[in-house]
Design a binder for these strands. Structure first.
Lengths: 193, 193
DNA sequence: CTAAATCTAACGAACGTTCGTTAGTTATAC
DNA sequence: GTATAACTAACGAACGTTCGTTAGATTTAG
């Protein structure tokens, strides 16, 4: 299907140059067609963008949901650190998470509302799952905390900072250092009385 | 000085729409002149952008340096939390930090190299100062840690995540919650044995 | 089985608009 | 009276988009 090739090229250039900086002719050239031909598959630039966005959202969400459904809920140290590894993997394997991150925080102005809705949706779901996991661990006295929301938000903060480090450069060493540092302090912070 | 007005308008639109999405006519209109008149003050779009960038960098750096020069180095809990408050203040008072954040992570492709150099410079300096502060606190046995780099990187991670929260929405409540959660876990993580 | 109709995917050409930029001219300020 | 900073006018290039058309495959009808 040619549509998928176009979406793939769109994902690439939207990620690198942003919505305004990516041009249809550039995207078409990548696929080997003229920019007018894109209109046989999409209504226009906005349509292409929004389809790429929804694909990225779905991929991101389903990867995370799948991970959460697989963990055993008895070993928070392994499960939480594994989630950070998952995020790093997703980021490096496919471009969708990078695209998603960029558009979450710096959306094209005229689509900001539509994008915000999707972002809120995914954020809400992930937070809800994490919070219930933390609650389980608190009940099982595996970690020490009064309210589940505190470690949840702190952990999501680490996820964000790791993603920023991923988008920043490709300083593999610095990423590893930062992950280790954040994780060490975080884990000590929620597991020690 | 009209140049400053132009830079101020440039800062605004570069921050909202990014380099490619901001147009000189838009910027000129904000100031009340025609876009061609910008060329009496700047060589072109790149020149304007880079001057805005350097102003933002300088403002960001000097605010942070000033803060570090004022703290007494005996009370890390107050000093570190105060730094997070400073970042939030800077972000909400002037647009420069938001601009700086956007361009650090999603620079226009043809200026990426020049921008990266500035970003690396400021990052390096802040990290060096923080690391030496942490070393002082470790030596004074106010915090518990072996190497200063670990709490430094973990703290910088919190700074990043707070900035992302600031750029995201203006959910004041969520920002407060996240700050409190990250800080609680972090402080417990570096102060408890 | 063949002929007509429909669908798919691409094309060149052109649309109106906006972009950043340059040149030459006029007004303002010291 | 000279510089500075604004203006008008115009530039080539690129943008997203629409148009009419073509070539080939697939489906439908007689």
């Amino acid at each position: 299907m040619k549509s998928n090739e176009i979406k793939k090229a769109g994902l690439k250039y939207f990620t690198i140059h942003g919505y305004e900086g990516a041009s249809l002719s550039q995207i078409a050239e990548e696929v080997g067609i003229k920019k007018q031909s894109i209109y046989a598959h999409f209504k226009g630039k906005d349509d292409l963008f929004l389809q790429v966005l929804r694909d990225a959202k779905e991929a991101d969400l389903s990867s995370k949901l799948e991970y959460f459904s697989k963990i055993d809920s008895r070993n928070p140290e392994k499960d939480l650190y594994g989630f950070l590894q998952l995020v790093i993997d997703l980021f490096q394997k496919n471009e969708q998470l990078k695209f998603w991150l960029r558009m979450s925080f710096f959306p094209p102005a005229h689509l900001a509302e539509a994008i915000d809705k999707e972002v809120f949706d995914i954020e809400e779901k992930v937070q809800a799952i994490l919070e219930s996991k933390f609650q389980d661990w608190i009940d099982a006295k595996v970690i020490v905390e009064e309210v589940a929301k505190t470690p949840t938000l702190a952990f999501l903060g680490i996820v964000d900072s790791i993603m920023l480090e991923l988008v920043y450069g490709n300083d593999e060493k610095r990423l590893k250092d930062k992950l280790e540092a954040s994780w060490t302090v975080f884990w000590r912070g929620i597991s020690h009385p």
